[in-house]
Design a protein around this nucleic acid. Sequence first.
RNA 1: GGGCCUGUAGCUCAAUGGUUAGAGCAGGGCGCUCAUAACGCCUUGGCUGGGGGUUCGAAUCCCUCCGGGCCUACCA
Length: 576
Amino acid sequence: MARILITSALPYINGIKHLGNLVGSQLPADLYARYMRARGHEVMFICATDEHGTPAELAAAKAEQPVDIYCAEMHETQAALARGFKLSFDHFGRSSSARNHALTQHMAGRLNAAGLISEVSEKQVYSNADRRFLPDRYIEGTCPNCGYERARGDQCENCTKQLSPTDLVEPHSAISGSTDLEVRETKHLFLRQSTLRDKLDAWIDTKTDWPILTTSIAKKWLHDGDGLRDRGITRDLDWGIAVKDGDNDWPGMEGKVFYVWFDAPIEYIAATAEWADANGLDDAAWRRWWREDEGADDVRYVQFMGKDNVPFHTLSFPATQMGANFDGSEPWKMVDYIKSFNYLNYDGGQFSTSQGRGVFMDQALSILPSDYWRWWLLSHAPESNDSEFTWENFQASVNKDLADVLGNLVSRVTKFCRSKFSEAVPEGGDMGAPEAQLIADLTSRIRSYETLMEGMEVRKSAAELRAIWALGNEYLQEAAPWSVFKTDPAQAAMQIRLALNLIRLYAVLSKPFVPDAAAAMMDAMGADDWRWPEDISDALTTLPAGHAFTTPDVLFSKITDEQRDDWAARFSGVRA
RNA sequence: GGGCCUGUAGCUCAAUGGUUAGAGCAGGGCGCUCAUAACGCCUUGGCUGGGGGUUCGAAUCCCUCCGGGCCUACCA
């Protein structure tokens, strides 16, 4: 039995996430967590809302709420949606938690003790009307290069020229439109990650099994130009974690908070502490997952994220962890494998939170149960490339895979048994060559499925699982119990007994992908044996003759053309 | 501008430089009648974006052109 620590990239707090966000981190992480638990491993699956930063403050202002209330409510909204999608987090924390405040301040103190923090005085744009410093991209104006009137302070979207806010003609706040801007001097802390470049580079070099997408991004940042640059880790905001040097005040940093990207990854650790608190456990309970000197030396740590998150997880956060262990006294568990995803597009364009384009988690659950979404999203996960959601493809895949191949199998077996025998596993007959062949085929495919799941090959795992389902239909076609029954009822009984056991087996195998359907299948079989099938022959004799079952309702109803067209129209525009 | 990824059947995707480029869906044919008009078997379909090169051999490696995407460090 292994110990596996799994974290999903933290969903940002400023609204309900869309299906692209879901499939890029939380959903595949859940698939992996569920599978590893099913295999008997000890799993810690952590996620949390990422609550700090300018966009959170602005979203709260737009909602006319204090930012702490806004975040608390939105956290609960996101937590409820996570439950709705059956995301099996051991804990779904908040980066604004007391635990994260303390740990982030502690980490900063360690980095300071290591000599890895420098103070830099810089000039930034302050908006008097908004009473806040504005990040570059929140300043708009006319591009001096091409004349585009809505260029942002970091880059012109029209001509792609890199800009600084002072380059803009007639600059104004993107928030209020105010032109009452001034350049102010402000002091910030920088993480001197440039001094860790060689260590990080060597560390990345050991990760030969990581996806190219992951390592190439890290390498780019390490070697581009002058190499890895130091990074500001504080901001002039109200909402966030106060800048402290461990438990002590940080002179000159009064009123400032840590940058959201500094405290967000630390929340992976802090959320595990929140988990311990929520379960009445002591600190040792979470530290054995995160401190190599306190039990985490045998932990395998896997992170899931979209490709946009890679630089922070390959460089900034590792730099924080390495730096905090400068004297060897705090060996924090670092990531062993990063599974990164491309983007899911929506019907020819991008999903967009800001533009309200696509299907959002709450909308998805309002029209169909979570299993439908889980199956489609996972079986089409954007692993090697960006992939695309279309309603036609969604309807076709779901109807064929879930309703026809799996759902109908359950239906035909249980209804046949009910009509020809009873709602109990029938007795009689002996297995022969066709059954031996089925078991051999299942064994081969299940071993392949296991290998793919362990390797986090999401799409291929889904394809293999589907092929495993199809073996059931192939067997029934060949065995033809409806014909055999007429001449040899005992033989037909054996065939159906096997098929009923197959349903239970499929419940076990399918649970990581479609947990609700799996539970319905297991429940219909009147069983609660979720042990992973080591020996397939044994697994197919779990339900003995005479064991009562129930014939379930239709497991997956089909998506009609009318529904598909209705949804396509309803979600074609911009979210209200 | 720079860097990286990518282009394979109508669609969504596979294929350590090595038989005749494979699956699923869609299309066509046959079979079956237990089942959600479901299932099974067979089958059509490809100048692997264009062009050039390396090699005994290229979807794969190199060059170039065309198309799509991401990143470019103050959104997160």
